[in-house]
Design a protein around this nucleic acid. Structure first.
Lengths: 123, 123
DNA sequence: GGAAGTACACACAATTTGGTAAGTACACAT
DNA sequence: ATGTGTACTTACCAAATTGTGTGTACTTCC
């Protein structure tokens, strides 16, 4: 899955190994991770509820990003072992503790009209 | 440079067009951007000073990320038009206003030993 | 005259990330 | 028996990001 010897990977390690910021960014760095966290901040959601809340995401991507968020300890999963299947995802205390920071970024983005900036950059 | 019609690109736009958080993340989302901002927070630096401060970065990457940071208004450049060349990079007010958030992420990362978490994830 | 330092640019290759389309398993409803 | 809903998995391909290596222009130093 990863070429452990690539410069790419080596640089990633070098950067994150001592820097709390880049380590954090790495953990939430997928395209959909922050959006998932954002939707979970009000409580746990079933798999399909997340899907419907994030219309553009594909199943593969959703599962993948959820897995990565679980591996890094931001998200928890409860499997009810029922049929039809039922699973619920929620923030761990770690994940929840990061929400205030996301909220600050949100406010900062609004104050600085950052969405307009990005729109202009891309034409 | 970009395939404007790819689903990848389309999704990126859909995500960022209304969300201040993902827009912000897009702007600082390169591998080196945050590190560059972090080094500039104490004042302006010459091109080579940044290079030396970030040993692993290649010249192409440094220039590229600096350009993108300038385009999105986080970083300013002063060219002294001297020979040998002399340029200085510094944070714009926008860039500077984001530093407190980076500092909060830094503190959060330290409190949660996030670098250890990432280290464990990667073996 | 050759080497070194500055701040880049460009062609190209390696890697990683993201997206599509299809398939699995099981139960219940029609 | 065919379809629907849930929560996934897998193989494959497209696209984006990142890295390598070389070259430029100009001056000063040895």
């Amino acid at each position: 899955m990863r070429k452990e010897n690539s410069t790419h990977h080596h640089n990633e390690k070098a950067i994150t190994s001592n820097c709390p910021i880049t380590s954090t960014m790495l953990a939430i760095g997928g395209r959909w991770k922050i959006i998932i966290l954002w939707h979970l901040k009000t409580g746990s959601l079933r798999y399909n509820e997340i899907r419907k809340a994030i219309p553009n995401i594909s199943e593969k991507m959703l599962i993948q990003q959820l897995k990565e968020l679980m591996q890094s300890g931001w998200v928890d999963k409860k499997d009810y072992h029922e049929i039809p299947p039922r699973t619920e995802y929620s923030l761990t205390p770690l994940g929840a503790s990061f929400i205030p920071i996301l909220e600050r970024i949100y406010e900062w983005g609004v104050e600085n009209r950052i969405t307009d900036l990005v729109r202009n950059m891309e034409g």
